[in-house]
C-alpha cells in the first residue's frame, strides 16, 4: 500500500511537469493548427534560467542559504524571459509564414528548435556540462505530513499548488475573460474573428506568451525536483518535450483540460508501469499509448465532447 501510494506521488510530480508543458503545445495547436516543436526547448531554457539566476545571486552550492523569496523570484524571472522568447519566436519565425503552407511553418519550428538547442550550448549561455540545481526552498525535503508511510515534502506541496494554481488560472483566463474569448474565436475561425474586430496577431502573440511562461514553470518544477540539469538538449530535454507532446495528443490536441489530464495520465502510466511491470519499457508505454489513442480515439480522450479549441 505504502509502495503503491509512493508510486502514485511520483507520478503526480512528473504529471505536473508534463501537464504544464503539454498546455503550450495544445494552445498553439488550437490557435494556429501547427505543432510548435520548439516548445520543448523553451522548457529547457526555463529550467536553465532558474539555475543561472540562482547562480548569479549566489544561491547555489553547499553553503548557500537562499532567502524565502528566492524561489518566487527565480520563477518570475524565468517565466518572464521565456514568455519573451516565446513571443519572439512567433514574431520572427512563425508570423511571417502565417499564410504559407503549413509544412513551411513546421520546418521553421524545427529550425527554431535546433537554434535554441545549439545556441544554448554556448559557454556564456548554458555551456555543455550538467549542473546541479539546488532546491531554492528552505527545508524543501522535510516531510510536511507522512501519509500511508509516504513522506509528502514541503517541495511536493509547493510544486503541486503551483501547477494546479497555474492550470486553474489558465482555465479561468480561457473560459472567463475577454482575451480567452478572443483566443477561442481565433481558434474557431481566424478570418471570421478578424472580421469581427479581434486583433488576431495580438491574440496569437498572447497565446505564445502564456504557453511559454507555463513551459518555464514546468522547467522550474523540473529543476527544483530533479536537481540535475543536463546539457546538450538531446540528453533529456527533447524526450521530455516529446512526452509532453504525446500528453497533449492523448488528452486531445487543442483542448487545454485534455492536456492536463493527458499529462497526469501519461506520468502515472510511466511510473506504475516502470514500478510494477518493467522499467526498461518506460518510454515504450508512453509511445504505445499514443498509437493506441490515435487508432481508437484519434481526437484524444477529451477530444469528443468539447468543441472549443484553444
Amino acid at each position: 500500500m505504502n509502495d503503491l501510494f509512493q508510486t502514485f506521488v511520483a507520478g503526480l510530480r512528473l504529471g505536473c511537469i508534463y501537464g504544464l508543458v503539454a498546455l503550450g503545445y495544445t494552445m498553439v495547436y488550437g490557435v494556429l493548427r501547427f505543432i510548435n516543436f520548439a516548445h520543448g526547448d523553451i522548457v529547457m531554457v526555463g529550467a536553465w534560467l532558474c539555475f543561472i539566476v540562482a547562480r548569479a545571486m549566489h544561491w547555489t552550492g553547499f553553503t548557500a542559504h537562499p532567502p524565502l523569496y528566492a524561489a518566487a523570484f527565480v520563477l518570475l524571472i524565468s517565466m518572464t524571459a521565456c514568455a519573451l522568447l516565446g513571443w519572439l519566436t512567433e514574431r520572427l519565425a512563425y508570423r511571417p509564414l502565417r499564410r504559407a503552407p503549413r509544412l513551411n511553418v513546421l520546418i521553421a519550428a524545427i529550425g527554431v528548435s535546433l537554434f535554441i538547442e545549439n545556441a544554448g550550448q554556448l559557454r556564456f549561455l548554458f555551456g555543455t556540462e550538467p549542473q546541479a540545481m539546488p532546491s531554492l526552498l528552505p527545508r524543501a525535503q522535510t516531510a510536511l505530513i507522512t501519509l500511508l508511510g509516504v513522506r509528502i515534502t514541503v517541495l511536493d506541496v509547493v510544486i503541486g499548488l503551483l501547477a494546479v494554481g497555474l492550470m486553474i488560472a489558465l482555465d479561468i483566463l480561457v473560459f472567463r475573460t475577454r482575451l480567452g474569448l478572443a483566443m477561442r474565436a481565433v481558434a474557431f475561425d481566424d478570418a471570421a474573428a478578424a472580421l469581427t474586430g479581434v486583433p488576431v496577431n495580438r491574440v496569437v502573440g498572447m497565446t505564445f506568451i502564456i504557453g511559454s511562461a507555463l513551459a518555464a514553470a514546468g522547467g522550474f518544477i523540473f529543476a527544483t525536483e530533479y536537481h540535475n540539469l543536463q546539457q546538450p538538449a538531446e540528453m533529456s530535454w527533447i524526450l521530455l518535450g516529446l512526452k509532453a507532446f504525446v500528453a497533449a495528443v492523448v488528452g486531445g490536441i487543442g483542448n487545454i483540460r485534455g492536456a492536463m489530464v493527458g499529462g497526469l495520465l501519461l506520468a502515472l502510466l510511466e511510473q506504475f508501469g516502470g514500478r510494477y511491470v518493467s522499467n526498461d519499457l518506460r518510454d515504450v508505454y508512453v509511445f504505445a499509448i499514443l498509437i493506441l489513442v490515435l487508432l481508437v480515439k484519434p481526437g484524444g480522450i477529451m477530444g469528443a465532447q468539447v468543441t472549443e479549441k484553444v
Binding site: Q6, L14, Y226, N228, G274, R275
Partner: peptide
C-alpha cells in the same frame, strides 16, 4: 539523461540489499 529513478529504486528497495552497485557516469549518479 533520465531524471526520475523512483521506479527502479522502489524495485531495488523490495530486496533489502546491503549495498547498491551503480556503475554509471557522474552525470546521473548524483
Amino acid at each position: 539523461g533520465d531524471s526520475d529513478y523512483s521506479a527502479q529504486l522502489g524495485r531495488i528497495r523490495d530486496g533489502h540489499p546491503d549495498v547498491i552497485y551503480i556503475p554509471g557516469y557522474y552525470t546521473e549518479v548524483g
